[in-house]
Design a protein around this nucleic acid. Sequence first.
DNA 1: GTCTATATCCAGATAGAC
DNA 2: GTCTATCTGGATATAGAC
Lengths: 207, 207
Amino acid sequence: MKPQGKASREEILEAARKVFIENGYDGARMQEIADEAGVNKALIHYYFRSKEELFQEVFLEAFIKVVPSVMVILNSDEPLFKKIEQFVSKYLDTLNENPLIPGFILHELAHGRQHIDALIRGTGLNPQFFINQIYREIDAGKIKNCDPTQLIINILSLCIFPFVAQPILKGVFFRNREDDYARFMLERKSDVVRFIIASIRKQQEES
Amino acid sequence: MKPQGKASREEILEAARKVFIENGYDGARMQEIADEAGVNKALIHYYFRSKEELFQEVFLEAFIKVVPSVMVILNSDEPLFKKIEQFVSKYLDTLNENPLIPGFILHELAHGRQHIDALIRGTGLNPQFFINQIYREIDAGKIKNCDPTQLIINILSLCIFPFVAQPILKGVFFRNREDDYARFMLERKSDVVRFIIASIRKQQEES
DNA sequence: GTCTATATCCAGATAGAC
DNA sequence: GTCTATCTGGATATAGAC
């Protein structure tokens, strides 16, 4: 059962995902990855030259999963309100499946382990299309006047922050009751959409 | 100039704040703290028994600075809208002065180095008063019906997230231009308040 | 109180047998 | 391709002189 070639590499990667994302680069131990994968430390160095290289692969994959692949929605041709609803819904689903990734990404980016510019260029991340759409909706009198960048960052904040702050929110607001927290998260999808739409929708007789 | 007693302890603490908050516990090196403080590694162990103990002091101080000390505003007797405005304004000021602390706190909490329940109890953190106020405003027909917990978490998200995500936001939205980013942050205070108020304020003839 | 020197441990990485 | 054994560096921590 031992010699398996290709499979080992994937098991190491899988273990590395878990250990890196849970503990961050500095907190991760090659030994723990090896144990988790059921292989020897040396084998990790055989497939990936170093801890750094293994990390890069894990990080890039995680980054793509939660950043550009979801941002794509913002470049679709849907009308604004519908697009926001789709985006929030899809994004919260994605993050619920990978609740630790946002904190992982943000922590590593904050410590300069990653070259953000290269990531942005490499993944073609660009908010300009969506920004222009918001400007058009303002000009057309469909939504209130606002700074599109602020609006987009508001949307991202409302979606991502609860995951980054999960432990403290659980403690402060739900006394660590998993079921209360789960209910909160279920409600959140529609709640966030309502919250956003309500604050940009134009009412009667406003400028 | 060397023998200074009390002063050294404070200089070590100051250096430790910088190094821990920038790099996290796992990424911090005692040597770097010593260099930064202009003292010898051994002296750190003289004042603080271990890295862990030094860290605890830094963490608790940082935690108090950005969590309970600002949450106090939420327990004042101000009317709701005024309170939200005060809170956002004060909180963004506090975070602008300590932009790295949110990421630091959240990262360490996420990795269980801290016992959140003890922190919450120790600092008397409790959102119940504010939650009740929101319920009263709803009952009085002053704001739309909503889940107060969701609302509070929305407010926190809008304030804190931009700091946690600072590097990537700078890269994606401002092409790393510091002045554009600074302008954004200046605008943000009033923008966030508007955003929140607009989404909870009651309009004519709504349920 | 502050330093030098050192002990101790542990992590990442490599050599080499199978 | 996978393992055992080992090297090497670096990190926390301590002993002990001044």
